Amino acid sequence: MKRHRLFRVLLMVALMVVAVLGYTKVMARISLVEPPVQAADALLADHLIVSKADRRLYLMQDGRVLQSYDIAMGARWDGGPKQSEGDERTPEGDYRIDWRNPQSVAHLSLHISYPDAADQARAARGGYDPGGNIMIHGLPNGWGAIGTLHLLMNWTDGCIAVTNSEMREIWARTPDGTPITIKPQWTPEV
């Protein structure tokens, strides 16, 4: 009987090793996917707006909506603006897309310049860490197949998440330096 248990344990360990190696190989392939090239100037956003209440991200150009996307945010997105590290809230305010990561743990990511000077000063007065590393990103690598099912819940730690195909479009249409405004609620003018 002991030999049978030992065999089962060894078999399980071997299967886990194969699964981890296979997962690592898939992740390496995913990370080698080239990010999209920048879109033509006529398609570039000059401003991004997030309406938290509507769970929408808008790509804007000259005050008009170019494209909009359903988003997932921090699990406590409706608890007001991000205050501190780990609060699972999405910031509110005016920021910029200040750098991008093609090798992100999620499918591509655009960094939002949170915390700004005001966020840092508020945190210093309160004696806490304001947090950071807030991104617009796709789904975690290896999870792209779930697509829009990710919208069933707000699952990030404060970031703004879209599907992988949407992230590729946003990446191509959002140059570094693009302003982003994150509001509790915003409705585009018709």
Rank of each mutant, 00 (worst) to 15 (best):
K2P: 02
K2H: 12
R3E: 13
H4C: 07
H4V: 13
R5N: 09
F7D: 09
R8N: 11
R8M: 15
V9S: 09
L10I: 09
M12I: 08
V13T: 01
V17K: 03
L21F: 13
L21K: 00
L21T: 12
T24K: 02
T24Q: 10
K25S: 14
V26T: 13
V26Y: 11
M27N: 11
M27C: 07
S31G: 10
A39H: 07
A40R: 15
D41N: 07
A42K: 10
A42S: 13
L43F: 09
L44N: 01
A45T: 06
A45G: 04
H47C: 11
I49M: 08
I49N: 04
S51F: 11
K52G: 04
A53C: 03
A53Y: 09
L59P: 02
M60W: 07
D62A: 15
G63V: 09
G63D: 11
L66E: 03
L66C: 02
Q67D: 14
Y69A: 03
Y69G: 02
A75T: 13
A75R: 14
R76G: 02
D78H: 12
G79R: 15
P81G: 13
P81C: 11
K82H: 13
E85M: 12
G86C: 07
G86V: 02
G86I: 04
E88P: 01
R89F: 04
P91F: 05
R96Q: 08
R96G: 03
I97T: 06
I97L: 06
D98S: 05
W99H: 11
W99G: 01
R100V: 01
R100E: 07
N101I: 03
N101M: 04
N101V: 05
Q103D: 12
S104C: 10
V105P: 14
H107Y: 12
S109A: 14
L110G: 05
H111Y: 11
H111L: 07
H111W: 10
A117Y: 02
D119V: 01
Q120G: 07
Q120L: 14
A121D: 03
R122E: 05
A123R: 07
A123F: 00
Y128I: 09
Y128M: 06
G132V: 02
I136E: 00
L139F: 00
P140Q: 00
G142T: 07
T148F: 01
M153P: 02
W155L: 04
I160Q: 05
T163D: 12
T163H: 04
N164P: 14
S165T: 15
M167A: 04
M167L: 10
E169A: 14
W171P: 07
W171F: 01
A172W: 01
T174P: 05
T178R: 08
T178N: 06
T178V: 11
P179G: 03
P179T: 05
I180A: 05
T181Y: 10
I182G: 06
Q185K: 08
Q185W: 13
W186M: 00
T187E: 15
P188T: 09
E189D: 13
E189G: 06
